[in-house]
Design a protein around this nucleic acid. Structure first.
Lengths: 196, 196, 196, 196
DNA sequence: CATGAATGAGACTTCATTCAT
DNA sequence: CATGAATGAAGTCTCATTCAT
């Protein structure tokens, strides 16, 4: 029995993230992914049902992990709502800083793909956003955050902002320091542009 | 007086926006666009060089217009920086409210496409963002906005936020009132989530 | 508008019969059919949904025609049942004599294909057999044919016999005269092997 | 005494017959055959050269056996030619009754396969038909059967008839009693449809 | 002998684009 | 300008076969 050496599944998934980031999902070729993962084209189909399945697994892994981390964070009684918001921002930045290609794939492909198909990664993603929403609600109730804001809207607001900055950074890593981006996001989220 | 014989070019472009929004650029078929525009498939190629050209023209029209409007707004001496920010937000919302399909195409396809090709619509888009940046700078100089923020980052921040909310709204028009979104964006942009 | 010159649909169908006969349905390549029909590979898909559709159309054309001819024959009041049986045998022989490739495709592929899919050509085929059955019933009622035989069985008996002989002939056209085959079938069908 | 450790070769062959009958040779997957035989995919290739080889062995086993039985029958001096014909029909029916899947594989795949390749099972098959032919010749010489018939043609005639009925029965076992089929074939073969 | 993960050749099918009318 | 039949390049996916263990 030929033993599965190394971790082909992981190799393929990582290669897929890179190729999807470089060429976009639709122009990405399975053969290129296979080559980058040092496996035969057909081997991709041993581990994944089809091209779509690669993308789905990428997002599922991403949001399943993120949700897990976020839960740890949001349940931490020692933190204020404001500190938790900072934590969420850090959480997101840490993941995508480590894997800029993943940031690009997320920004460019997730919406487009989620629209057509109903996959289970969407559940994780939505739960992640729900969990973030809870933190904001908590902050409002505690009087930390303004009760004027709509939490539903805020979640798309802040997420879109972060997404766009990450995408810009991932595309031009030299134009902006990630740390500066992170700090500015935290500042803007909490204070807006008004002089405090 | 020009005889109104239908404007095929415009018909095709509008059909393209709808089909790209529905099916995504890559899955969209030229034949479907032609059908929706009530022309023959071949006629698309009388007015446009190829499929990419359709998308390019869509974005060029969009940002050329937006830039023109923004220039009028930003050069208005009667407005404070803060009022101009409100104006920019209104500008964007007005365009995409009128044409939700365009919002979807913008959000889903522009990044993806801009990455690969170097097209002139990008100039207009960048100039639009530059012009917005100027307004922020002006606000900082006048002491209206905090000098702690990086204008470059802010432009991606606010634009990402708006984009994401528009996309969410365009995909689920009933989940949120556009007016509430607009108000919240204005509030958040200026005040953040802190209790004022 | 590029006009459909000649009859590409018919050309493709005829090429398909030849290629299916030569290589068998599963080993037959669309590209070879296209080449034999002097069209581009893609053109096959202008006229036919897919490879299966080619086979289905072949059988539909065949049995629709055969059924039409058989109805004319069986409704002819001037003929005895025995003469009608001869007529049916002639009918089948005439078609396949003209198109030996069709005989091979019918024998080799119809059963195999009919099993998996439920296509409308089967209706025509079954009706053809039903119509033949009627002739036999008529012969029994008139006292021409033995009442000892089961008409249902007879229809598969005679049809299998003819099919097998046609297939053998089509595969080795020189081993047997078609006329001799035809005569023997008529004789055997009516008299069996017993000395009369 | 040989230890009974299961007979993988036989298991695989029996599984192959079933799968070929169900799915057709070309759509049948080696992996499904292996699974049905409770062995690993690779084990199929320990016992058989390739997929074709499975089919060849199936037919070789079939006709080698059939030929052996037929020789016993045809050399039996105690039987008339007519009785021998009955015996041949019984012989064929007995085999396929016991193994309807084999009947389907025979009818659907043998012709198709025999055409392309030159395999040794064809020798056995031809010899089986030759041996049957001898019985008919003997019947003619003895004056039992009509000298008007061509023995070469008869062999394909009767074999086709039987094949078709077996196939019909194997596909729809409930539509006809096998006994009735057998009787009718014997009757038709000897007497034809004429009233005796 | 037995295994089953890995391979990679091969073919169907799609659809942007062309061009004769 | 307008048409839409025709094209053919290109990529996904399947699955028989191999081979290291």
């Amino acid at each position: 029995m030929r033993i599965k050496e190394g971790n082909k599944e992981k190799d393929i998934l990582e290669a897929a993230v890179k190729v999807f980031a470089e060429d976009g999902f639709h122009k990405a070729k399975i053969s290129k992914i296979a080559e980058k993962a040092s496996v035969a084209t057909g081997s991709v189909y041993v581990y994944f049902k089809n091209k779509d399945d690669l993308l789905i697994k990428i997002f599922k892994d991403l949001w399943e992990n993120m949700l897990g981390e976020l839960k740890l964070l949001s349940s931490n009684k020692a933190l204020s709502a404001s500190e938790k918001i900072d934590g969420i921002i850090d959480l997101i930045f840490d993941v995508f800083t480590e894997n800029p290609s993943l940031a690009i794939v997320f920004v460019n492909e997730q919406n487009n793909h989620a629209r057509t198909r109903q996959d289970d990664f969407i559940d994780y993603y939505e739960k992640f956003l729900d969990e973030g929403e809870k933190v904001v609600k908590e902050g409002i109730e505690k009087g930390e955050f303004s009760s004027a804001l709509d939490v539903k809207i805020f979640r798309y607001y802040i997420f879109g902002a972060i997404r766009n900055l990450l995408h810009h950074w991932a595309s031009n890593p030299k134009s902006l320091t990630l740390n500066k981006i992170r700090q500015n996001i935290k500042y803007l989220t909490k204070n807006g542009i008004r002089k405090v």
